[in-house]
């Protein structure tokens, strides 16, 4: 375990999670969620779960973000909270 890397990744993950639920623009929130997923997959690589990290990077961050963007583009982009 490299604790400095761990600390930075955990910090970024928490910042990304808080930003994703607080941004008013839904498209920005979705992109921040994608960044959150990528940081999460870095953390899992660092924990030794390489297969889970692969799957998260391709399915969670890739396909998930695409689905979210498709849904946001078909609905409204502005959010009240």
């Amino acid at each position: 375990m490299i604790w400095q890397l761990d600390l930075i990744l955990c910090l970024f993950i928490i910042i990304c999670a808080i930003a994703a639920i607080n941004v008013k623009d839904l498209l920005a929130a979705v992109i921040i969620l994608g960044a959150y997923s990528f940081f999460m997959c870095l953390l899992w690589t660092e924990m030794g779960a390489v297969d889970v990290a692969f799957t998260e990077a391709s399915v969670g961050a890739g396909v998930g973000t695409v689905l979210f963007i498709a849904a946001v583009s078909k609905t409204k982009r502005r959010s009240k909270d």
């Binding site: 999670a17 994703a20 639920i21 839904l26 929130a29 979705v30 969620l33 959150y36 997923s37 998930g64 979210f68 849904a71 946001v72 609905t75 959010s79 909270d81």
Partner: peptide, 9 residues
């Protein structure tokens, strides 16, 4: 959509 993002988190 925010609720759904929360579910993902």
């Amino acid at each position: 959509v925010k609720k759904l993002i929360g579910m993902n988190v």
